[in-house]
């Protein structure tokens, strides 16, 4: 279940249609914890089925001792995805510790797509809230960035890749493709033909071409 903690009536009214349409998996919720109530007990009692909490950044809590970062830490520790949105966030971001920030308008624009993916796969992909239908492209570019920084930033691009390293490099590269769930087999087939005397630049070009072909399928 996905819970949205929206405390602006106008925004709630504007977006209630999409939430109602998918009321089996998502709802607007309130975090009405009492002053003397334990946070853990309250969450277990009310949101034990949560796969993801989406919180307005300036959500007003009834209990002034509770704040957003407490809930965020608790949820991230429990493996529940957590997203914070606000009208004041200019560029959305996902930090390495899993904290997702997104602009309110962008979040609501991408909400339907996010829910549909969740319903189809039972998986919460917060990048969809940031990028909508372009989230796979975002992942593809992230992967490219990682591979580039790993292999091409420090090496002389004209140099031939040492043959003793090549297998490991290819294994790592394809692991990366698998990690991001992209199909590396077309690139693999081409590389097999050029296993020797391959320069970093050639490797980069082959990867780039392969990644571009993947992009065309997204």
């Amino acid at each position: 279940m996905i819970y949205i903690f929206e405390d602006r009536d106008s925004r709630k009214a504007q977006n209630q249609d999409v939430v109602k349409e998918h009321s089996d998996v998502i709802c607007f919720a309130k975090f009405d914890i009492d002053t003397d109530q334990d946070l853990n007990d309250f969450i277990v009692e009310n949101f034990c089925d949560a796969d993801c909490l989406i919180f307005h950044k300036s959500y007003t809590f009834k209990d002034k001792n509770v704040n957003l970062s407490q809930i965020q830490s608790y949820m991230l520790r429990s493996g529940v995805k957590f997203c914070v949105y606000s009208g004041g966030i200019e560029h959305g971001s996902i930090s390495q510790d899993g904290i997702t920030l997104v602009n309110a308008n962008v979040m609501y624009e991408n909400l339907a797509h996010f829910i549909n993916y969740y319903k189809d796969s039972n998986e919460v992909i917060l990048e969809i809230l940031l990028w909508g239908e372009r989230y796979r492209l975002s992942q593809l570019i992230s992967m490219q960035y990682e591979l580039f920084n790993q292999y091409f930033m420090s090496n002389d691009l004209e140099a031939i890749i040492p043959s003793e390293d090549l297998d490991e490099i290819l294994d790592d590269t394809f692991s990366k493709f698998e990690e991001y769930e992209f199909d590396a087999s077309p690139i693999l087939d081409k590389l097999k033909d050029r296993m020797y005397s391959l320069t970093w630049n050639e490797f980069f070009n082959m990867l780039s071409t392969g990644i571009h072909k993947i992009e065309l399928t997204l």
Binding site: H91, S93, Q96, S138, I141, S142, Y145
Partner: peptide, 12 residues
């Protein structure tokens, strides 16, 4: 062109 991996498409 990219400063943070997870936000690569932003080209921050």
């Amino acid at each position: 062109t990219v400063l943070e991996r997870d936000n690569a498409l932003l080209y921050d």
